[in-house]
């Protein structure tokens, strides 16, 4: 029933129901699990457990949810825009560009906020936007975006940005260099809701914008000229998707460092479960992305007895094999 028979609205409702259930279960599990498990009973009676829950655990789970949702829908949107199932913020160099922008801001000590938004977020957005534009321009010849060139230029841009981050660390004063290093490892560790709220200022409009564009992205995922003939303003949509994805990736990278492969794995799982329609894949990736990173983070927190794994390592360990498997099945499509 994946494509032909089931009406879309039914598939949409089924996807929403299943994915909301998965997300709810992930949230409950992640709120409970940790160096110290917190039960409902403990929340009622134990002030320390309450403090731990509201100051650390709940904000962290929310943070994982925001970052996971953002990376997953950015991945789904970029895959549709470039008609490439291997595209995601990490493989296209968008995360690398964001990390570069954030490093520059940290090295220069830009602690200011503009309209409540930290300058580091905006610098990471600028870096992400720059990278997506460069990678797109390199890979585009006329109306065609070459899939191989797209991924290669993304990987090269990531390496280039990483080298520049190292250079910035080298030249920055030791205290700031340490700050960059700590941030680069990537963690969703957060105290209180302040950062979460500041992220939401940029993330909520970006999510809404991308959800509104999901029909245009659905048409673009099939074919650019077909989409144009059906009334999609192709160039304008491209720019809008670049900006929205750069905003989401910039903000998440500025807070959590570079967390790879979420945007690759999650949309693919949603497609396998509920079909190819981007009007389901994008909102579905939003829900499953949150659930996925919440669970990955819970695993990172609890896998080792006295230490914490970087959540980026957990996602990369899962994402690497998925990337290779997708590459293999993609070759099969091309050969067909």
């Amino acid at each position: 029933m994946k494509g032909g028979a089931a009406p879309l609205s039914g598939r949409f409702l089924r996807a929403a129901f299943v994915l909301l259930a998965i997300l709810s279960a992930a949230v409950v599990l992640a709120l409970w699990a940790g160096s110290r498990t917190i039960s409902v009973e403990a929340l009622r009676s134990d002030p320390v457990a309450r403090l731990l829950f509201f100051r650390l655990r709940l904000p962290r789970v929310m943070m994982a949810g925001l970052v996971g949702s953002s990376l997953a829908i950015a991945g789904a949107a970029l895959q549709a825009l470039f008609r490439n199932p291997l595209a995601d913020p990490f493989t296209l160099g968008v995360s690398g560009g964001g990390a570069l922008g954030a490093s520059v801001a940290i090295a220069l000590g830009w602690g200011v906020r503009i309209a409540g938004v930290p300058a580091v977020f905006l610098a990471a957005f600028a870096g992400a936007m720059f990278s997506v534009m460069v990678v797109h321009q390199v890979a585009r010849t006329g109306a065609v975006v070459l899939p191989g060139a797209l991924l290669l230029s993304g990987v090269v841009f990531n390496l280039f940005a990483a080298a520049l981050v190292v250079a910035i660390q080298f030249f920055a004063d030791p205290e700031r260099a340490l700050q960059i290093l700590r941030w680069m490892v990537g963690s969703l560790d957060v105290v209180g809701f302040d950062t979460v709220v500041r992220m939401l200022i940029l993330l909520v409009p970006s999510w809404a914008g991308l959800l509104l564009l999901s029909r245009d992205l659905h048409l673009l995922a099939i074919d650019e000229d077909t989409a144009a003939s059906l009334g999609v303003p192709v160039r304008r949509t491209e720019v809008q998707v670049h900006i929205l994805c750069s905003l989401m990736v910039g903000v998440t990278v500025a807070v959590g460092g570079s967390i790879g492969f979420v945007g690759l794995i999650v949309p693919h799982v949603v497609r396998l479960l509920f079909g190819e329609d981007l009007r389901i894949v994008i909102p579905g990736s939003f829900l499953l992305g949150a659930a996925f990173l919440i669970l990955a983070d819970a695993l990172a927190r609890t896998a080792l007895p006295n230490a914490e794994l970087p959540v980026g390592a957990v996602t990369a360990l899962l994402g690497g094999p998925v990337f290779l498997w997708l590459l293999r099945s993609r070759q099969r499509y091309s050969a067909a």
Partner: peptide
Amino acid sequence: YVPQSIALAFPFTAME
């Protein structure tokens, strides 16, 4: 308008 060929990155069904 029907273009010369359509690039197929995703397995959409014909109905879709």
